[in-house]
């Protein structure tokens, strides 16, 4: 093989796999409303996501396994702990933080922020994640 044929193989391979990848992207986007419950994505859920981002929760926790591994997985937190417990955590965090060993810092969370975060977690919990995590502990 010489340089020109290596270059042509690079171009050919890139074009073909990019085309396949874009087609699969179209399929993935088409599947999203069903798998991610788009109809139930209320304004509250959207606000919850903004609160989630405002405090960079992802840089300690994981969400669907992505994040920082320093704190528990939260995609199924409502199922694991129940809504009431999650509310207590967030309400306490708004005043003084939470936890005994690895602590969650105090965050400025309004009543609306807390309600929205809970709605956000509930919505996350309904995403079709192909049976991940393997068990309730996340």
């Amino acid at each position: 093989m010489n340089k020109a044929s290596a270059r042509n193989m690079f171009i050919g391979a890139t074009v073909i796999v990019s085309a396949i990848f874009l087609y699969m992207t179209v399929l993935s986007i088409k599947a999203m409303p069903a798998r991610a419950n788009t109809p139930q994505l209320t304004e509250e859920v959207a606000w919850g996501k903004k609160v989630w981002e405002k405090h960079a929760c992802i840089d300690c926790h994981t969400l669907m396994g992505e994040g920082a591994y320093y704190a528990p997985e939260l995609v199924n937190v409502i199922e694991r702990r129940g809504e009431a417990y999650v509310r207590v955590v967030l309400e306490t965090a708004a005043i003084q933080g939470w936890g005994t060993t690895r602590k969650m810092p105090q965050f400025d969370l309004s009543k609306k922020d807390i309600d929205s975060l809970v709605e956000f977690f509930k919505w996350m919990g309904k995403i079709e994640t192909s049976n991940w995590p393997p068990n309730i502990e996340g």
Binding site: M1, N2, K3, A6, R7, M9, F10, A13, T14, V17, S18, I20, F21, M24, L27, S28, A31, M32, R35, A36, M64, G65, E66, I127, E128, T129, S130, W132, P133
Partner: peptide, 29 residues
């Protein structure tokens, strides 16, 4: 430069669709 094209050809050939290993459990098909 021949090797360079082989390497980057393999990078895109495997890596672009290889993105799929991030799409196992995040609500994607």
């Amino acid at each position: 430069e021949k090797w360079l094209y082989i390497i980057i050809g393999l990078t895109f050939l495997t890596g672009i669709i290889g993105t799929g290993h991030h799409y196992y459990w995040i609500g994607t098909p």
